[in-house]
Simulated scan of single mutants.
Amino acid sequence: MRLENTAVVAHAKDDLRVEVLPEPTPSNAEAVIEIAYGGICGSDLHYWTHGAAGESILIDPLVLGHEVVGTVLTAAADGTGPAAGTRVAVHPNTPHAVEGIRSPEGRPNLAPASTYLGSAARHPHTDGAFARRVALPARMLRALPDNLSLRDAALVEPASVAWHAVSRAGEVAGKTVLVIGTGPIGALAVAVLKRAGAAHITAVDMHEKPLEIARELGAHATLHATDTEAISAVQADIVIESSGNWRGLASAVRGATRGGRVVMVGLLPSGEQPALISLAIVRELELMGSFRFNDEIDEVIAALADGSLVIAPAITHEYPVAEAAEAFAVALDSATSGKVLLAF
């Protein structure tokens, strides 16, 4: 007997519900996917705790979730995409151009009017995929190798964000690297850096649990975020700033060597933020943004399949979808959790 199409829906600030959706009705270019796992992301938490993620404000109820994997139940009617029975990861971005607004070719993550699964950036909102069965565009689907478990593949999307951030840093082999903030993205950046041959990786966080995960994923040393003197002494060639707050960015600037590069992947709140710009100038630091990802998802899947990228230690908890409220509460506590998965 088929289970009800249970989903996780944010209705407003502090109003997260587990409810039953109608069965999906795919268009010709969409496949129906039976979702196996979904990873809870910071944006999902923000919609729950604030009713908004940055400047994306909830107006209507929103099905959350963009870090999902599953199996194709019904292939797209137009013949595109994987066949029924194929296990897949999902690339949740849909790029859209806007006349008169320039964006570079080959970098669809920078298209000015992109939509993302589980996002209230536009209205109508773009529902996510935290549901047992969803209809998704076939172009979003990436077939998974047989030797890659769906549980590990649940991290493909956030690992792609980390991979993109590391790629923005340029050549990392043999370099000294500092990672500020080892929540799921920072921890996965450590794993990607290890695979890329970084000579020494120092991870920084406020809490011991994320630092423990960072060590499991390849960090050679860890520091508490309040130890600013030790952070400044690292003198890293490359810094990955993934804390998403101005104090973390200050630590990134202090911890970079002269002429170093700081990649900012942690999304700070909108509006003006304090920053050590004068120090960045006199050290000739390169400050680089990193936003989502492009085709790196294919490289991540290949690296997971061949065993060169190890990310499983980043998963700390798994809950059935019926216990989504508890799962979200655990994910919100960065002192005790890494990546929290929902099992559908």
Rank of each mutant, 00 (worst) to 15 (best):
V190D: 08
L193H: 13
E212I: 06
A203N: 02
P210Y: 03
R195F: 02
L193T: 13
I213P: 01
R195S: 11
A189R: 06
G197H: 03
A191Y: 08
I201W: 07
A203G: 05
A199T: 03
R195E: 13
V192G: 13
A196M: 10
A203I: 03
A198Y: 02
L188Q: 10
P210H: 02
H207E: 14
E208K: 09
D205M: 06
E212V: 11
H207T: 04
K209Y: 14
I213S: 01
A189S: 15
E208H: 09
V192R: 07
T202W: 03
R195M: 15
G218P: 05
L211D: 01
E216L: 15
V190R: 07
V192F: 11
A203M: 04
E216M: 14
E216D: 15
V192D: 09
G218M: 00
L217H: 07
A191W: 08
R195D: 06
R195Y: 01
M206R: 15
L217K: 04
G197P: 07
A199R: 12
A219R: 00
I201G: 07
E208D: 15
A219T: 02
A198T: 04
I201R: 00
L188V: 12
A191N: 05
A189P: 09
H200C: 02
M206D: 08
K209P: 01
L217A: 09
E212C: 03
P210K: 00
L193N: 13
K209M: 12
V190L: 12
L217S: 07
V190Y: 13
H207I: 00
R195P: 08
I201F: 08
L193D: 14
A199S: 14
H200K: 06
H200Y: 03
A203R: 02
K209W: 05
A199P: 09
E216A: 15
M206V: 15
A199L: 13
G197V: 03
